[in-house]
């Protein structure tokens, strides 16, 4: 018969081995910039360094402008021309505002699409919430780029977006998936950003 201490040692050894074998590492993933966000950073840093000719070239040849042209129907009219004009005029503030509007519009589009997918009752609730979580990650990746610019122009809107984002994120992490509860904060993000776009768009600036 096996003695109790021996048995305990064997059990402890087996438990340690399984946990050690379970603890193998498989690497970690750090989300990378996509061509649009990478191009935005290049333009932003060039503007900050006062290299407007470089910023203009990066804007003309980069992925951001191509995406802007693709998204043209959802953007305020004259946005591209306004950014180009600001870069030519070495007007960092207006250029930054134009880029902020573009990303705010991207985020607004993502928030509305997330809301639409969350409302689709044909998909399982857990899958809808998981998809909503992925959409939130994408929303944050874009919003994070212009959060500072938004908060400088409209601190209330920036706070409202961040609070709504955190609320929606909380529902993603909740033990029971409830897609319906995720929808209001997403709609709020879209509505607040629509206001920011409206207030900062080139036509609004001309009118003020």
């Amino acid at each position: 018969m096996i003695r109790r201490p021996t048995l305990l040692i064997v059990l402890a050894a087996i438990a340690t081995m399984i946990s050690a074998a379970h603890a193998h590492h498989v690497g970690s993933y750090v989300p990378r910039d996509n061509p649009v966000s990478a191009n935005f950073k290049q333009i932003k840093f060039s503007v900050q360094a006062g290299k407007f000719d470089v910023a203009r070239r990066l804007f003309d040849e980069g992925a951001l402008r191509r995406e802007m042209q693709k998204q043209a129907p959802t953007l305020p009219p004259g946005l591209e021309a306004s950014i180009r004009g600001a870069l030519d005029a070495r007007d960092a503030r207006t250029a930054e505002a134009g880029l902020m509007i573009f990303f705010a519009a991207l985020v607004r589009g993502l928030a509305l699409e997330a809301d639409r997918q969350l409302a689709d009752a044909t998909a399982p609730a857990a899958a809808r919430v998981a998809g909503g979580g992925k959409m939130l990650e994408a929303i944050w990746r874009y919003y994070n780029l212009v959060d500072f610019a938004v908060s400088q122009r409209d601190p209330t809107a920036a706070t409202a977006v961040r609070l709504a984002f955190e609320e929606a994120e909380g529902y993603v992490k909740a033990p029971t998936p409830s897609p319906e509860r995720m929808r209001p904060p997403l709609v709020r993000i879209a509505r607040v950003l629509a206001g920011v776009i409206e207030a900062s768009s080139p036509s609004a600036r001309r009118d003020s």
């Binding site: 989300p31 996509n34 991207l106 993502l110 699409e113 997918q117 998809g131 992925k134 959409m135 990650e137 994408a138 990746r141 874009y142």
Partner: peptide
């Protein structure tokens, strides 16, 4: 989810 900005990252 069928949205490029999300799917490309996944």
């Amino acid at each position: 989810v069928g949205v490029r900005d999300v799917d490309e990252q996944i």
